[in-house]
């Protein structure tokens, strides 16, 4: 059964993404695209003539997609959370190397931003893993979701996680990775056709990846986890509609000055 879910992960993510676009549109009193728009996009992209810049560049996008899929699969299978964070790191580095591997200013700018985003959220993800480990006594997700009550013990850590969710799903105020007014397509700019589709689907997987972290905070209660995910999903989109984009250095500063102390403070609190 679990393998079926893993196989369907990109589609599942696509549904989340489509749903989010509708939700955001409704918040802005627009009608928005159809719910299945991501899949219509897919058919359109597959139909296009594919142009590539050079082969390694195109292949890195495919590798990025599969590495990301792999880390989402590892979450579904309930493996070691720390390993999962680093599997995700591999996936991100493949994307960043892809961005750097072409001689395009926008691609470089986009990859620079992806790298800086990584610098912002990576420590928090690891601290979340460590915090969950300290409470549950296990780095395995299967072990973590057998205990409950993370929210009571790790509220500040959860707040820190909340602050990095917008970075991962590229939502305001931390949507520097997607600022098309500044960097056009960013890392994605030199892709087209089927290879762009891989990058597009990677975005769906990112949703599953980061919201899984939120879900784990629900602990043994699946319902609490689901409520948390739904609540965070709403909140992130609300904030996205209500705030303006900050600059990249500001983003890093905010994460290091606010989210990091929160996370560390929480760890100090449960250790003492």
């Amino acid at each position: 059964m679990i393998w079926v879910w893993i196989a369907l992960a990109p589609i599942l993510g696509g549904l989340v993404y489509g749903g989010e676009r509708v939700l955001r549109a409704r918040m802005q009193r627009r009608l928005g695209p159809p719910f299945l728009q991501p899949f219509y996009d897919m058919f359109k992209l597959l139909d296009k003539r594919t142009l590539i810049v050079h082969a390694p560049h195109a292949l890195l996008a495919v590798a990025h997609f599969f590495a990301l899929w792999f880390s989402v699969a590892a979450i579904f299978l309930g493996w070691n959370l720390l390993y999962i964070v680093f599997l995700h790191l591999i996936a991100q580095m493949l994307l960043i190397l892809a961005g750097y591997s072409v001689r395009s200013a926008y691609s470089h700018l986009g990859a620079n931003r992806e790298l800086l985003m990584l610098v912002a959220y990576e420590p928090i993800l690891i601290l979340v893993a460590v915090g969950l480990y300290l409470v549950s006594g296990s780095f395995e997700i299967t072990g973590m979701i057998q205990k409950g009550n993370y929210l009571a013990q790790l509220p500040l850590l959860f707040a820190a996680l909340l602050m990095i969710v917008p970075i991962k799903v590229k939502k305001s105020p931390f949507d520097v990775g997607e600022a098309h007014q500044e960097i056009v397509g960013g890392v994605e700019i030199e892709y087209s056709g089927v290879f762009y589709e891989f990058l597009y689907m990677s975005r769906f997987l990112e949703y599953l990846f980061i919201y899984s972290f939120v879900f784990i905070f629900g602990g043994e209660s699946v319902w609490l986890g689901a409520v948390l995910v739904a609540g965070v999903f709403l909140l992130v989109n609300l904030v996205d509609n209500a705030t303006a984009r900050v600059r990249t250095p500001q983003m890093i500063k905010i994460i290091y000055m606010a989210a990091m102390p929160l996370a560390v403070l929480n760890l100090v609190w449960i250790l003492l």
Partner: peptide, 25 residues
């Protein structure tokens, strides 16, 4: 350890960004 490792990732890949960047085929 966590922050330092992340900074080193930034450092090394920042340098690779200069080295890589191949022109089109």
């Amino acid at each position: 350890m966590i922050i330092g490792s992340t900074l080193l990732v930034l450092l090394y890949f920042k340098v690779s960004s200069a080295l890589l960047s191949n022109p089109s085929d």
